[in-house]
Structures are given as C-alpha cells and as structure tokens.
Computed example of a mutant assay.
Amino acid sequence: MQSRPWIEEHDKMFRWYDYWIKGIDNGVMDEPAVTVHVEGSHDTSTGDQYPTKPTEYRSLYLRPRHKLSAEPELMGPAHAAPDGFYQAPLTVSDTVQVVSWSTAAFTEPTEMMGTGAAHLFAEIDQPDTNFILRLWDLAPSGQRQLITTGYLKASQRELDEERTSEGNPYHPHNRKVPVQPGVVEEYVIRLYPFSNSFQPGHQLTAELSNAEPLADEHNSLLPPDAFHLPVGRPVTHKIYRDSEHPSRLVLPFTTN
C-alpha cells in the first residue's frame, strides 16, 4: 500500500523534533531539506531548496472566448472587448459571479512548481474591490482540483519593486491607495506556491471573482470562518486583455 504524503511529512516532522529536542541521532538531517508531492502525477521530488527542479517562467495570456494561450492577443482594445462581471453585495445576493479562462487540453504531461503571478489590467467603477484568482486542474471528466490561489485588494496593489521578481510580486501592504473609478490599472496578484503536473487531456482553468463561492469542489470543505470578507458594495469589473493590456498568468514551468 502506498503511504499518504501527509503521513510521511508528519513522520519526518516528529523525527526532526526528536533530533533537535531529544538529541536522538536519527539521520533526519542527512535527508533532503525539501520534499515536494506533485499533484496530478503523484510523483515525489526532493532537493535542497524549493522548487526542487529547474524552472522557467512562461506567460499564458488571457484571450477572447475565455481562452488562455501562450501567444499574446494581437487585436487592440477597439476590437478585443474586455471580459466583465458584476458582483452584488452578499447582503443582496449570495450568488458569486465568476469569469474564467482555460487552456486547450494538454497533449503531454506539463509540470509546474513554484510561485506564480497574475497580471490583470482591470477597470472598476468603485474605489475598491477584491480580486480572488483560483487555478484549477480540469480533467476530461469535468472533475477538477484546486491547485493554487491568489488574493489582492485593489487598494493594496502597490508593489515593492526592489523585492518583486518575475513570478513573485511583493506587496508591502503599508498604505491604502484608492482606485480611481473608470481608469484601467494593472493589478499584479501573487499566486501561492504550488506543484502540479497537468496530464494529457487536462486543462488549466483560471477563475476570477470578487468574493469566494460559498460551495464548490473546494470551499464546501471549509469552515464558515475560512472565507475572506466580501466588499460591501456593488462593483462592476472589466478585465482587459488586448494588445495594449496584456493580461496574463506568469507560471513556473519545470524544465526537466
């Protein structure tokens, strides 16, 4: 029987405590510092740092008809109309509006490991909103697995350029910068570290919303207090993805 990853990690954690607290020489410090369990392939990768494999950042661009593509959009804003969604306050409706974009089905195993980022060019009609981005591994059967998330309040969009790198933006969150309604801004959202291998026939789907759906494949498992506070006002969002506004995901593809 194959052991579960969380059992293996708990065992290693206890052995680490035995070594440092009880002084038991059990060899745990001779083992690789990082063990990564890759979703999708169920492989295990070890190394001295994370990510455990060489990676390169590649962009997947938001395109018309809710598509994600390695090729950027060629049409300008006059012809590539933005995607949009409206969110009413949850005191008015508990329906969460979601807009999504998906890749074509992968033809070969495609592995990603590390942090990521989303660069979204958006216009809103209020001084603030939430951006909640979730990436899914969508199987041909329709079943899907959440692989990572990213959260950003629009008024906290300011970046620390010295600490920001490709695929790993850094928001200092030390002041509020209100949004000017009706103006297109670039919002850079950090995606939490993840590791996933998309198998042939699977697709990567990115979902964007202002609030978190109360019940889906992932959130139905969470306690009621696990959700982010919604914005208490109606907000209309326009997501531009044309040649002048290259909205995109920047993701860590492994190279071996």
Rank of each mutant, 00 (worst) to 15 (best):
L146S: 04
N196A: 08
T236I: 05
I239F: 13
L251M: 15
P169W: 01
L68S: 02
L221C: 07
H245G: 03
T44G: 04
K176H: 12
M112A: 06
P230N: 06
V188P: 02
L204M: 15
I7K: 11
P252E: 11
K67H: 09
S195G: 15
D216G: 03
E111F: 03
G27E: 08
D25N: 14
W136C: 00
Y57L: 13
H171F: 08
S197D: 09
Q180A: 13
Q145K: 15
E162S: 14
E217T: 15
S165L: 12
G47D: 08
V38P: 01
S197A: 12
L208A: 03
Y57D: 06
M29C: 10
T236P: 01
Y192L: 12
A88S: 10
L120N: 00
L229C: 07
M29K: 15
D137S: 15
I147M: 04
A154W: 00
Q199L: 15
D242Y: 01
L214G: 14
S247C: 01
A104I: 10
G150P: 02
D216Q: 03
S141T: 15
E244V: 05
A88E: 14
L60G: 01
D48T: 12
R4F: 07
V38L: 11
G142I: 02
E9R: 14
L221F: 08
S209E: 11
Y61N: 08
V179Y: 02
S45V: 13
Q145D: 07
T205Y: 00
V28N: 07
P77M: 06
Y151T: 10
R241F: 08
T236N: 11
R233K: 11
A81T: 08
T35G: 10
S165R: 15
E71C: 05
P109D: 13
D137P: 00
K176M: 12
P109Y: 09
P32M: 03
A70Q: 09
L208C: 03
K53S: 07
P5W: 01
G84F: 03
H119D: 14
R248I: 04
D225K: 07
V235C: 02
F85W: 14
Q199T: 05
Y19R: 13
T115A: 11
P230F: 09
D125G: 02
H10M: 11
W101L: 02
R58S: 07
D216M: 04
L191S: 02
